[in-house]
């Protein structure tokens, strides 16, 4: 399967924050996806810089992308800036967390 931002994003929706039970795309943790015919570069963050599961979630994203796009060279980079903020949550994620929808 040829990687493009849509297929990569779809694959990353299989990676969940184990505590919140929400996928990392809906959480707004994926900042950018760059793709070429043979490469994928993802910049993502975590909900907290002290989250002990942060490295595991990044590793899981890498694992999922390698399995979904075995012929591509894949890099997953941790982006410290901008820090994650609840405003980055998708509407569905806000609903799961019990936050009111953004007007």
């Amino acid at each position: 399967m040829m990687p493009n931002p849509a297929t990569v994003s779809a694959a990353l929706r299989h990676v969940f924050d184990p505590e919140l039970g929400i996928d990392i795309v809906s959480l707004g943790l994926v900042y950018s996806i760059e793709c070429g015919p043979r490469y994928i570069e993802v910049a993502m963050t975590t909900t907290s810089d002290s989250c002990p599961m942060g490295p595991a979630i990044l590793q899981d994203a890498l694992t999922v992308l390698r399995r979904s796009f075995p012929s591509s060279e894949i890099h997953v980079e941790y982006a410290e800036l901008p820090p994650w903020h609840p405003e980055m949550l998708s509407a569905s994620a806000r609903e799961v967390l019990g936050l009111p929808p953004v007007p």
């Binding site: 990676v15 184990p18 505590e19 919140l20 595991a56 399995r67």
Partner: peptide, 27 residues
């Protein structure tokens, strides 16, 4: 009820991420 489920998720379920649907801590 967070510490033990987290440990279980990490050791038992996390290796299956990307292969099959895995439960999260709340499950």
């Amino acid at each position: 009820f967070k510490i033990l489920p987290f440990l279980l998720w990490y050791h038992r379920y996390r290796p299956r991420v990307g292969i099959a649907p895995v439960p999260v801590v709340g499950d």
